[in-house]
Amino acid sequence: DVAKAIINRAVYGESQNRSYERLALLVDTVGPRLSGSKSLEKAIQIMYQNLQENGLDNVHLEPVKIPHWERGEESAVILAPRRHQMAILGLGSSVGTPPEGITAEVLVVTSFEELQRRAPEAKGKIVVYNQPYVNYSTTVQYRVNGAVEAAKVGALASLIRSVTSFSIYSPHTGMQEYQEGVPKIPTACITVEDAELMSRLASRGIRIVVQLKMGAKTYCDAYSFNTVAEITGSKFPEQVVLVSGHLDSWDVGQGAMDDGGGAFISWEALSLIKDLGLRPKRTLRLVLWTAEEQGGVGASQYYQLHKVNISNYSLVMESDLGTFLPTGLRFTGSEKARAIMKEVMSLLEPLNITQVLSDGEATDISFWIRDGVPGASLQDDLHKYFSFHHSHGDTMTVMDPKQMNVAAAVWAVVSYVVADLEEMLPRN
């Protein structure tokens, strides 16, 4: 009755709302936690103390180096055909503009293909991408590569429609990349509403002029830590089930949903198991990653350091898609491992959450999954998640304690049972 005991304690019992309350305390205290920022390092120190006070095993910080970029002051104004101040969010690693800003005519396109077709028009302009939202992984290409593709055809800057499934005039940020040999131009996201406004104006043949000012700056890499805590295994202590979320966030909102929820239900999983006096046969290792938003920078260094023990990792788990009411577990692994996970998820029948889906990848555990270790991620309401993702709306107000309780219960049952099975999960 272990599964039932975990579910009862998390959803109906005395641990109810604990992960929500712990998260609220942290994000209300330190706020957003951008890579390289002091608030991120403060959050790491607070978690280091929290995990020690929680009496978990082997609590320690593993040093890594991470990017340090700062947004500075930024603004964008449509000067013609009429004056209209736009809400924008510069993209991580973007360069800034000169102090006086960049004032130029706009070329609006809805795709990279259209940009190629109209390349001769782009020179000396600000390219505005009004790409339709398809899903996150498809549409995020415009945020990541928009500046490079615009620079290749001579543009001075790029403004990209926010990658979101829903907008109430909410700009969304995120990382973007430059390319060797391509001029680095400033790049920012604008709201869906402003992208569509400029698209309509352009479709009527109206000339649009925008003034963009960005104070973005990149500094040399900063020191940071991945935060680690364990429940040491009783029989195969050298074997590991890794359960994780990331502590860093963008510099908007509170980073409560992305990925405070994932980090804190992962901590809650260990707390629930400890509260019930359980100790699985394998070590259950909590890792709270740093600098995930810059492309899994902390996790990549953890992987380099620990891959020597890859044969001892039975399952790697990261929750980084929100902790609203879970609808199932995303999983990547062999068919036999998938069949076993289906049995594990059947233990969650009391919550009616038993689905095992595909695509268990998440940025910080992708290195392990790429090299054969089974991986899992929590599935929930992605439309809601991407409505708030990387925006000022990512605060405790979007979080729901009851849904977090259920998410923590799912996370705890899966991680504990796999950690306690007599054998590790089979691989291809």
Binding site: N312, I340, E343, M424
Partner: peptide, 24 residues
Amino acid sequence: KAINKSNISQRTFEEIKEEIASYR
């Protein structure tokens, strides 16, 4: 690709199913 030490399972799927059911 790395394989885990006990990749050769000693147990049938039915045995694993029974083991997991014991957590119910």
